[in-house]
Design a protein around this nucleic acid. Structure first.
Lengths: 151, 151
DNA sequence: TAATTTCATTTGCATATACAAATGAAGAAA
DNA sequence: TTTCTTCATTTGTATATGCAAATGAAATTA
């Protein structure tokens, strides 16, 4: 019945490395990323691209640096993400002197309901696996620690 | 004084996206990865490579699939990691039928003390930023959630 | 105003990671 | 034994991400 996992299958808490923040944080992030990827696939966007587009829809004219701050990504990563959304004709960039602004296109705007659906489905999916209270608590704790770590 | 961070600088808990597990886990993992990278730089290894080598030293003859399970990485990722350690002459691979085993070289073994140092320095560095009890607590909580998420 | 510094963004390059398909071998079933 | 299935690993390809250097413009200083 159980397929292809005899060696790999392992609860992370059974690993001798699981007590290390490096693995704990990495393993969680990879699994969450995967879960999110499944959710956003229906709009042919990665979760990062999806959230970025959402931000641009909520805050039209937003600057890349502000995206980087809010999404906790490096400026260069934001540039790449925006490039891809631009290729897909979902956003445009305008530059005025030092300031670059990202604007949604009509096509991008049209995606709003679906993006909202992705977000709520992602949260539902998570709710089905982890009870809401402990997830919320975990998120708060993670953020507390993240805020203490250097940029 | 403060340099180059006006737009990006932001506590993650101030972001409207910080309440989402996707960002919380990703942001934490990226910051921890960075912290760890600084620590392992002195042995010219990424943290993943360092931990993998450590595992091979602790469990000589270990199979890639078991590494994948313990480190919560995909088998293909483990293959790439091992390839690089092999290039650096720190480990060798032997294949006997279906079974592949990873063995440390003398050069790899010689690195053991330094690897231990990296691990303890990483933990010290973390201790300097986040108090030990809450870090341990967080790790346990993360692992609990991770274990509930699908492979 | 000219020179310097700061800032936001982008580019070039490198790393980390995964999925899906391919490989090669072992075990089970016919 | 021949075939089919399962398994562990590897390979091909793709995504995500970051650092350091480059760019171009604004702000500050001299």
């Amino acid at each position: 019945m159980k397929k292809g996992l005899s060696l790999q299958a392992m609860k992370c808490s059974e690993s001798r490395y699981s007590r290390c923040m490096y693995f704990a944080s990495g393993a969680l992030a990879r699994k969450i990323e995967k879960l999110a990827m499944e959710t956003w696939r229906k709009v042919s966007l990665s979760p990062s691209h999806g959230y970025l587009l959402m931000m641009v829809l909520d805050q039209p004219g937003i600057q890349p640096g502000s995206v980087a701050g809010q999404l906790q990504l490096s400026p260069s990563t934001v540039t790449r993400l925006v490039e891809k959304l631009e290729e897909k004709k979902l956003v445009t960039r305008t530059t005025d002197g030092k300031v670059t602004r990202i604007h949604p296109t009509a096509e991008g705007k049209a995606l709003y309901p679906e993006l909202e659906l992705c977000i709520s489905q992602f949260h539902e999916k998570l709710d089905g696996l982890v009870d809401r209270t402990s997830a919320d608590h975990l998120i708060r704790q993670i953020n507390q620690v993240t805020d203490k770590l250097p940029y």
